Amino acid sequence: MHFSKGHGTGNDFVIVADPADERRLSAAEVAALCDRRFGVGGDGLLRVAPSTEPEVKWFMDYRNADGSIAEMCGNGVRVFARYLLEQGLADGPEIAVSTRGGVKRVRVDGDQLSVDMGPAEFGPSSQASLSGFAWPGQAVSMGNPHLVCHLGEAEELEALDLHYQPRFDRAVFPDGVNVEFVVGSAPHVRMRVHERGVGETHSCGTGACAVAAVALRRAGSDTGTCKVDVPGGTLTVTVTDETIHLAGPAVIVAEGTARL
Rank of each mutant, 00 (worst) to 15 (best):
V140A: 11
V140W: 05
S141E: 06
M142L: 14
G143T: 10
P145F: 02
H146N: 07
V148L: 03
C149S: 07
C149N: 10
L151H: 05
E153V: 11
E155D: 14
E155N: 11
E156Y: 11
L157K: 10
L157P: 04
E158V: 14
A159V: 08
D161F: 05
L162V: 03
Y164V: 14
Q165E: 15
Q165G: 01
Q165P: 01
P166Q: 09
R167E: 15
F168K: 00
F168T: 06
F168V: 04
V172E: 04
P174I: 07
D175K: 14
G176E: 09
G176S: 05
G176N: 08
V177A: 02
V177N: 02
N178K: 07
E180L: 06
F181H: 09
V182K: 12
V183Q: 01
S185C: 07
S185P: 01
H188L: 12
R190E: 15
R190W: 10
R190M: 12
R192A: 00
V193P: 08
V193Q: 11
H194R: 09
E195F: 00
R196S: 03
V198S: 06
V198E: 06
V198N: 02
G199T: 10
H202W: 14
S203H: 03
S203T: 07
T206R: 07
G207Y: 03
G207M: 06
A208T: 08
A208W: 10
C209R: 04
A212S: 09
A212D: 06
A213R: 07
V214Y: 03
L216D: 04
R218L: 13
A219F: 02
A219N: 13
S221L: 07
T223S: 10
G224T: 13
